[in-house]
Design a protein around this nucleic acid. Structure first.
Lengths: 243, 243
DNA sequence: GGGGAGAGATGCCGC
DNA sequence: GCGGCATTTCTCCCC
């Protein structure tokens, strides 16, 4: 245990990334309050002061502290405590350690940012570029427009020159998608002083209740898949290679 | 590098928790698609097949795979690849490794669950137990009631026997809190065939736009803090100790 | 910094 | 499993 404590201490002093596993108890007081009884967990202290505590299962850390947290090792007989305090937020987490299985520190260098495709913005871009995916005769007006009343995904005119607001969802649209759309339609009607504004939810599918609420409000649903650029590219390439 | 690869291989075979840091590139294809250029990261493989990739900064993993992921080590000259595949979800993540700084495995035993107080449910419980926190003369009807139209936090009658729907938020209430409340009020009016249903948002604060929308709909806002049991206990104890 | 909305959201509970 | 919603949500973007 002693040598591993020294490793952690050195890692904290040099602001390296630290990973260790410990038999421990945890308490947290901050935005909420949590306690976690004794068990074995993996703890990570990052170079920016982020602290993560992971149980052996599950996606999420069971406890965490945000960047800027100050960690100190204290001896409180008979065990050692890692005190993690975020002064500005008034958050504190205490890890009371009974045993440490391993402890490693490393200075990580990483200037890369993740590149992502296939999110909702890609979807609204796709619809803006080709509104006939929604219905024939649509002409695009704007996309991702920040209004005082909210963020409208795609705005179009239909073949009869009526304003159409399109709300995109990458997955199944729910009640909140409809209430969101409803808010935009109402506010646009009010601000432009026009009576006829159509609302469309564009998503791969929609929940039954959301569909009912859409009908109630005279809106409509269009089933449309979110784009996957690389996958599409791959398919196109394989199609080309058939010839 | 060789010995660390063996450590990882052994950890995968025995389904232990694995932690290692590596100079690597990452690609992911699944619900979306991501790429991440070469850099140094911390990788965790959990006992349930969860995989997390952490950059040296920030709260969230830059890439992750859910429980049930199968990981295999493959050599693809000149580097080793950790292939992480979640068959059921059709997700795949590839970690191409150029160097490994350390690798550790450990079998973690942890049957504990985190105990949390101060969440929204505690807040609605508090209001239900003491509705006068909202206004005098309120009598509670139900809490956390699941209706077809949504989940109503607290339902009361006021001193004039009018139905009151209370929507709680632990932090600043926003537009979606108001639209949520509005949905409940409309649906309760409709289903009970009554005209007078009041709506109240209970939260520590509220955004300006949300306040405007509340007014538009004849709802009201009550400023109320979420409970913090331990903090309250501590204060009560310190008050007792004054005597 | 506040406000609004998405997230490869995840997790929880109820039907 | 779906549905609705909270999360110690976090993160991003825009005003």
């Amino acid at each position: 245990m002693e040598s591993k404590l020294l490793t952690i201490k050195a890692g904290l002093a040099s602001k390296h990334t630290i990973a260790f596993s410990a038999d421990c108890e945890i308490s947290y007081v901050g935005r909420a309050e949590t306690t976690l009884g004794r068990g074995e967990r993996l703890v990570i202290v990052k170079q920016d002061g982020t602290v993560l505590v992971h149980q052996p299962d599950g996606n999420h850390p069971v406890n965490y502290m945000k960047a800027g947290t100050e960690c100190t090792l204290e001896f409180s007989s008979p065990s050692w405590i890692l005190r993690c305090a975020h002064i500005a937020d008034g958050d504190e987490m205490l890890i009371t350690m009974f045993n440490i299985h391993f402890a490693e520190t490393v200075k990580l260098n990483d200037g890369q940012k993740v590149q992502l495709t296939g999110n909702e913005r890609d979807m609204s871009d796709m619809i803006y570029a080709n509104p006939s995916l929604i219905e024939p005769g649509l002409s695009p007006v704007s996309k991702e427009e920040q209004t005082k009343y909210g963020f409208i995904d795609v705005l179009c005119y239909d073949k009869d020159n009526a304003l159409v607001i399109v709300e995109c969802k990458r997955f199944k649209a729910d009640l909140s998608a409809v209430t969101q759309l409803r808010r935009y339609v109402e506010k646009i009607k009010e601000s432009k002083g026009i009576d006829k504004v159509r609302g469309i939810v564009a998503a791969p599918s929609i929940t039954e209740n959301a569909k009912l609420m859409l009908k109630d409000w005279g809106f409509s649903f269009v089933s449309i898949e979110p784009p996957k650029f690389r996958e599409r590219l791959r398919k196109e390439q394989s199609r080309l290679s058939d010839f």
